[in-house]
Structure formats: C-alpha cells, structure tokens
C-alpha cells in the first residue's frame, strides 16, 4: 500500500511538472516480519547529522539519496519501517536547496527555464521540514519527545507534537500545498491507499500547540 501510494503520487507530481528526478523506493524484508520502504542511501542521513546544512544537502543530492527532487532543487525523502501490518517508524523529510530561491517566491524562474537561477543574494532561508514517527519502546517521552513529531530547520530539540504518523500522500500534499502552490493552482487531490494510522498523541501533548492530521477520508 505504501509503495502504491508513493508510486501514484510520484507519477502525479511528474505529470504536473513539479518533480525533476526520482529514485525508486523499494521494500526490504528484514529479520522476522520487519520491513523497510525507502530509497537507497538512507543511512547517509545519520552520518551527516553534525555537518553544515549546505554540505548535507549537496552530499544527498550528489549521492542521489532522495526519493524526489523537486523543480527548485528541494529534496524529499520518504522512509518507513514496519513489522507485519504495523508501521513502527517513519522519517519524512523535505530539504530545500540552500542556494536557490524557493519556487513559490518566483515560479516563472523555474517554469520558463531561466538562466542564472543560481545567482541569488541573501534572500534564501532554507527551512528543512521533517515528520518523524517512532513507536519503539523507550524512545518517546511525554511532551519532550512525542511519538509523532515535526522538526523545523534542523533544530536539535525541536519536536512539535503531531497527532499521528503521516502517510506518503499526506506528507506530499502538505509540502505541495504549503510550498508549491499559488492561488491559481488547483489543489492536489490524491487517492489514499494507506489507511488506519492510529493516533499517538498523549493527553498532555493535546493540551499544547500541536499539529493534527485528520482521520481517514
């Protein structure tokens, strides 16, 4: 289901011209009935954690460790880990280019094949966005490390609580609606395949400012 949803959203984003390149995600069976769905080079992320953002970005780009490369140079990574029918962990990352202007600020730049697109001044403030989910025991801590959380801008301890894990479609729609939409553009409306992701948010976390992903359509 995960792969199907990923495949369909990739196809759709290619068709509308937002995705420039893509790497196939594959499913890997691990010991017992655990599995992962991701693209190659996922391990690279950990190794790079402490490096300057620009280096991380370039390393991931040149190593082709992304699921999708968007038209303004931003990368998207989708990786899931599960056991049987259950999703146990996910890491969904949006990594914008540190040197290019965001698409939304000047769509023509990218739609019309302009030259010198890389000649930008100080206007670029890249804000990576990550949705992480980790249901393994002993990882989460109420309020401090929510099971599902959102990290903005690579801040080490930024973990905004999120109500539940996100499906590939939900993450992609969130990114496209937030960063690749102009008022004239029709909104994405992809078909859901991944259903039944259960809430993980705690009662205490519900009382703070948090992100809420609506239930299945």
């Amino acid at each position: 289901m995960l792969l199907r949803e990923l495949g369909e959203l990739t196809g759709h984003l290619i068709e509308i011209g937002i995705v420039d390149a893509q790497n196939y995600s594959t499913i890997q069976q691990l010991s017992g009935n655990t599995w992962t769905v991701s693209q190659a080079g996922t391990q690279l992320n950990l190794a790079l954690k402490k490096r300057p953002y620009e280096e991380i970005y370039l390393e991931l780009l040149s190593g082709s460790s992304f699921t999708l490369l968007l038209l303004d140079g931003a990368l998207m990574q989708f990786s899931y880990e599960g056991s049987g029918e259950e999703v146990v962990r996910h890491r969904l990352a949006y990594l914008p280019s540190p040197t290019l202007l965001p698409y939304q600020n000047d769509p023509e730049l990218y739609l019309r094949e302009f030259h010198f697109v890389d000649i930008v001044g100080h206007q670029v403030v890249p804000v990576p966005v990550r949705f992480d989910f980790d249901a393994r025991e002993d990882v989460a801590r109420d309020l401090v490390h929510p099971v599902s959380h959102l990290t903005l801008g690579q801040y080490q301890h930024c973990r905004v609580p999120v109500s539940r894990p996100a499906s590939p479609r939900e993450f992609a729609e969130f990114i496209v609606h937030s960063f690749y939409s102009t008022p004239e553009m029709p909104r994405l409306n992809l078909k859901p395949h991944v259903l039944g992701l259960r809430p993980t948010i705690t009662a205490n976390e519900l009382k703070t400012l948090h992100f809420s992903i609506p239930g299945a359509k």
């Binding site: 011209g17 420039d20 390149a21 893509q22 196939y24 780009l61 490369l69 038209l71 303004d72 140079g73 280019s97 290019l100 990218y110 030259h115 697109v117 890389d118």
Partner: peptide
C-alpha cells in the same frame, strides 16, 4: 524506464 528533467542548472 526511469527518467528525469534537466531542471535547475546542476
């Protein structure tokens, strides 16, 4: 058949 579009000058 995998493919890509030569986008932003890389």
């Amino acid at each position: 058949v995998n493919n890509h579009i030569a986008g932003v000058d890389m």
